[in-house]
């Protein structure tokens, strides 16, 4: 592997597209396609957390799965430590896989119910041929300790654990091979409020301790803001705004970001704010609107928005803040 410059990103996405064929008609011809991810470019620095926010169907999970190569993107580059993962064949990809792991939303469905926790956690070592039986056992116990579960957990089955504990098992499995990057896809949305904060604290601790880089995908904006250094907002397969986590909340520029932020119900009674209620629903990625994908719901849309797709451009006067809107809204 070529040496990595100190400030080069750990992961860089260049114009990633993921189009799924939509088969219809008698001959199941793929006449149309669902553009789940439609030209995403972004980069992750080592040790940072990038929050990826958007509503259902915006393509955020698909993008996460492209990064860990559970999907092969239709086009574009996924540069991980300088290697383009998107172009690799399965065999060439395998040595890279251990560095990129995923934590799934549903800790019930993502753990094999017929395996003990010990077996689940041993599997990554077996697949990648790491260590012998004794060292694997020791590693499993170390993993359980790292995520705050007792050693006896190794003998038990997933159903014997609560949702929060199962998510800890999912995190332990992702950590088994000392990955560099974790893609966390809605890791706390299936959990109760009092358990959510336990798991978020664990993720923050692990990042500090192990120097992990996170792509944190979620729809709960307060959760995302709490764990992220930078935040990208996604709408209909594209990034519409990307900025420092504090800045995007203080100075949102894209009309969609503004509406999204104003729609979060806040636990401060009496503090009524002006809520921007968007009209209509998110359009289908099979048949996206012309021009700016947000124009049918945008209160500021003009003819230019209906015709011309805005590119992600640097925001005026704000460094590291990019936005995909034709206008500099006040």
């Amino acid at each position: 592997m070529p040496p990595i410059a100190a400030n080069s990103p750990l992961l860089e996405l260049q114009d990633v597209h993921m189009h799924f064929p939509v088969r219809e008609g008698v001959f199941l011809r793929a006449a149309r396609s669902c553009k789940a991810v439609d030209g995403v470019s972004l980069s992750l620095r080592a040790g940072e957390t990038l929050g990826l926010v958007g509503e259902s169907g915006c393509g955020k999970s698909t993008l996460g799965k492209c990064i860990v190569r559970l999907h092969q993107p239709t086009s574009g580059k996924i540069l991980f430590e300088g290697t383009n993962l998107a172009a690799l064949k399965p065999r060439a990809l395998k040595p890279h896989r251990r560095h990129l792991q995923m934590v799934f939303q549903d800790p019930v469905e993502s753990l094999n119910s017929r395996h003990t926790v010990g077996e689940i956690l041993t599997e990554p070592f077996e697949i990648h041929g790491v260590g012998d039986a004794a060292s694997r056992r020791a590693s499993v116990l170390a993993l359980l300790e790292k995520v705050g579960l007792p050693a006896v957990a190794a003998e038990r089955y997933p159903f014997e654990f609560s949702g929060g504990q199962r998510q800890r098992i999912g995190i332990a499995r992702a950590l088994a091979l000392n990955p560099r990057l974790l893609v966390c896809d809605e890791p706390v949305s299936a959990l109760d409020v009092s358990i959510q904060s336990q798991v978020l604290n664990l993720l923050l601790d692990l990042q500090r301790e192990l120097g992990l880089t996170y792509l944190f995908i979620a729809h709960n904006l307060a959760v995302v803001k709490h764990v992220s250094d930078r935040i990208a907002i996604m709408y209909l397969g594209r990034i519409v705004e990307l900025a420092d986590a504090d800045e995007i909340y203080e100075q949102p520029l894209h009309p969609y970001t503004r509406a999204l932020l104003s729609a979060i119900p806040r636990p401060n009674p009496g503090g009524r704010r002006e809520r921007i209620v968007l009209q209509g629903d998110v359009p289908s990625p099979i048949n996206p609107p012309s021009g700016c994908p947000f124009h049918p719901r945008c209160p500021h849309a003009t003819d230019r928005c209906r015709a011309e797709l805005p590119a992600l451009r640097p925001a005026p006067k704000l460094s590291g803040h990019t936005v995909a809107c034709h206008y500099d809204l006040p």
Partner: peptide, 12 residues
Amino acid sequence: SIPRLEQTRKTK
């Protein structure tokens, strides 16, 4: 225990 927007990021 709920994360709040006005809270300092990445704190316990």
